[in-house]
């Protein structure tokens, strides 16, 4: 069986800076994979390449056996491959419920459906997911009024509302109060196990990524340094070198 997401030999340069060089990775359906690497190692660039935020120089990106590298952001999102942002992005002037409602899937949009009302099922699902992330009580507050951590949770709930096949999470625990991290982890695992969403997670918090991911890729200087089970990667001397600035 071919993997859900297949990145083959992708390279991307910004001017003279080689942000990604010849990167290949696979994520199987239903798994949780992690990407680690020091700052500036090209993790977010790779995410942007996958979701179509910029063109890639070389290589191919396949999602469910379909080539993505020429599609644009919304088209890729509608195929069920969604990302969250490192600098959390939500619709600040809209209420939490509205943020959720408008995040429903948009795959089959016609003029009629665009002008339609939301139905009872939309409201129900929005409420359920807000409850899942503990924001139900604040559902009628403007999203911009929430704390940074709450916005992050809302963004995650919005992603779930979109009913994706796969979710790319860019540092989901960055900036979140440490006491909330465990709760967030549980929700990630819940999304994976119960909702069947494949996850690819960029994370700096080693404890989080080691307990969450089944397989980990480590990037450094735009290149793939190591891959494998969390234990293997953690004990790889090259990874330790990269993090401690051995180079």
């Amino acid at each position: 069986m071919s993997p859900l997401l297949e990145v083959n030999n992708v390279s991307k340069a910004f001017g003279g800076v080689q942000a990604n060089h010849d990167i290949s990775l696979q994520v199987a359906d239903g798994e949780i994979a992690g990407i680690i690497g020091p700052n500036g190692s090209g993790k977010t660039t790779l995410f942007n390449s996958i979701v179509g935020a910029h063109p890639i120089d070389r290589g191919s990106i396949k999602f469910r056996d379909e080539e993505l590298s020429r599609l644009r952001v919304p088209h890729i999102a509608r195929r069920g491959l969604l990302r969250t942002f490192q600098q959390t992005r939500i619709y600040k002037q809209m209420t939490c419920v509205e943020n959720m409602l408008i995040s429903r899937p948009h795959a089959n949009e016609t003029l009629g459906s665009m002008l339609a009302d939301f139905d009872e099922a939309d409201y129900r699902e929005a409420g359920e997911l807000l409850e899942l992330v503990g924001l139900y009580a604040k559902r009628n507050l403007q999203a911009g009024e929430l704390s940074f951590g709450q916005q992050k949770l809302l963004e995650f709930a919005m992603a779930l509302m979109n009913n994706p096949k796969m979710l790319l999470l860019d540092e989901p625990t960055a900036g979140i109060n440490p006491t909330l991290i465990n709760g967030l982890l549980e929700r990630l695992v819940y999304a994976n196990r119960e909702l069947g969403i494949t996850l690819l997670v960029i994370e700096h918090n080693m404890r989080v990524i080691m307990s969450l991911a089944q397989r980990i890729y480590c990037l450094a200087h735009g290149q793939l340094l190591a891959e494998g089970a969390p234990e293997t990667v953690r004990n790889d001397p090259r990874v330790i070198d990269a993090y401690l600035g051995g180079q």
């Binding site: 999102a77 969604l82 002037q93 408008i102 339609a116 009302d117």
Partner: peptide, 29 residues
């Protein structure tokens, strides 16, 4: 219209169009 999908969609475009695109919204339509 502003109560339904149309209203929230154009509000979303106002608040963050890049995010709306990343969520698969048919922004152009």
């Amino acid at each position: 219209l502003r109560r339904g999908r149309f209203g929230l969609a154009i509000n979303a475009i106002r608040d963050d169009e890049d995010k709306a695109e990343a969520m698969g919204l048919h922004t152009t339509r």
